[in-house]
Write a protein that binds this DNA or RNA. Structure first.
Lengths: 221, 221
DNA sequence: ACTTACTCTACGGCTACCCGTAGGGTTTTG
DNA sequence: CAAAACCCTACGGGTAGCCGTAGAGTAAGT
């Protein structure tokens, strides 16, 4: 079992819950940071005194932190600590459930576990820890589907085409006509509708307006 | 009349038209740059040899320029040259017709003239030059309304509220309910509709989706 | 060649958006 | 005080988006 675990979590409610779960697992050394920068410093010091952490459990979004912080989110923290110690096990602990984002995080950060802050968050967290110590990967069951390649959602140039024209104010029928004009294969208004529906589901958008807002934030358009 | 005029314009079609107009006004020295950086260097050199320009006519958007350019658009160029020579007269010559943007440019840059690239662009440009030499301000008549304070469009916190909730996927009826919940005065769906209509007109958006895309680009939300 | 599976397309009912109109309330003007 | 102007609100008809369904076309497997 893990000997020394670092928690990075800004919400006290969440961090106390995580701490309790870890105590129940009889993990001897548990440390906690409210800010990413602080967590990173603790991590570096632990290496320096040759008592390194063997597990990091980090939140994703840290809100209301002072602007002076260098690291603003859990993914940045994970990236930094893994570059210092590639053998470190990491669990991301977040409310984020957008398939696109979850998949991106799991792949880009080479996480060992992704625990979704659902109603069963602590149960999932305990399960994750016991699996990860044997080098297995864990993801909360409600999100497991996003990693199955069959269901996984790839953003295509077709999607970008739709989103860009949507952002330019074209309506679905007009986008369909544009597709026909350019000789792009699926071109019916029905196909445009269907693909936009998938995009909305994938980005948790309830209508095209929100979809454009979200994908603009993602930098897709 | 002006003695030495600098044109900054990337489209040869446009710059040759401007040059012709200036020749018809019997302006002795006319110089031309295709890039903002080049224009700025010409401007500095002219000051150095004590033969400064007394008028700058600049396009707004310079497309397809090499990335190496420091200045990317006409407004940046105007800002730079005015900081070197505050007495310089400047005319912005652009296709930009969005009221919000036009007003912002005229005010922030302290322009002497704004000529809209309409069908009467050269006629307007000549008129602008003759007015400006007597320290008057000129704006193309089709855009004059955007500066009249009575008609001018101010972005209020109410607008930001609407745009943010629109970007979050709420529909008009739901936004109306949010307004009622927060006790904000105009709260009917009809009022929401009407204000959104004005916003769309102001930003040249044809539907809420495009409106969100545009205002996101503006950095409003 | 037939079946199966998948994709693209077409259609119809429902809802949200869009736009003009009109009525009620407050403020401004004469 | 009354008239006018203005703003907020309510309503109704037309249009675009939304969703399920169903049919046509294509590709792969038996």
């Amino acid at each position: 079992m893990f000997q020394k675990v670092l928690i990075a979590e800004d919400a006290d409610l969440a961090s106390s819950g995580v701490r309790k779960a870890l105590e129940e697992l009889e993990i001897p050394k548990i440390e906690y940071s409210q800010y990413c920068d602080e967590a990173f410093i603790k991590f570096k010091n632990a290496i320096r005194i040759e008592e390194p952490f063997d597990l990091l459990i980090s939140d994703l979004s840290f809100v209301g932190n002072p602007n002076t912080q260098r690291l603003h989110s859990g993914d940045e923290l994970v990236k930094e600590v893994k570059s210092l110690d590639p053998t470190l096990k990491t669990i991301l602990f977040s409310i984020e459930d957008r398939p696109f984002k979850v998949k991106q995080l799991c792949n880009d950060l080479a996480l060992n576990g992704y625990v979704w802050k659902s109603n069963d968050a602590l149960k999932d967290l305990k399960k994750a820890i016991s699996l990860i110590k044997d080098d297995n990967f864990f993801i909360s069951p409600q999100l497991a589907h996003v990693l199955r390649s069959k269901e996984s959602f790839e953003i295509t140039s077709f999607d970008i085409f739709l989103l860009q024209h949507l952002a330019e104010g074209l309506e679905q029928k007009e986008i369909s006509e544009e597709l026909k004009k350019k000789g792009i294969k699926p071109s019916s208004t029905s196909s445009v509708e269907k693909r936009l529906k998938l995009l909305k589901e994938n980005f948790n958008a309830s209508n095209p307006t929100q979809l454009v807002a979200i994908t603009k934030d993602f930098g897709l358009i």
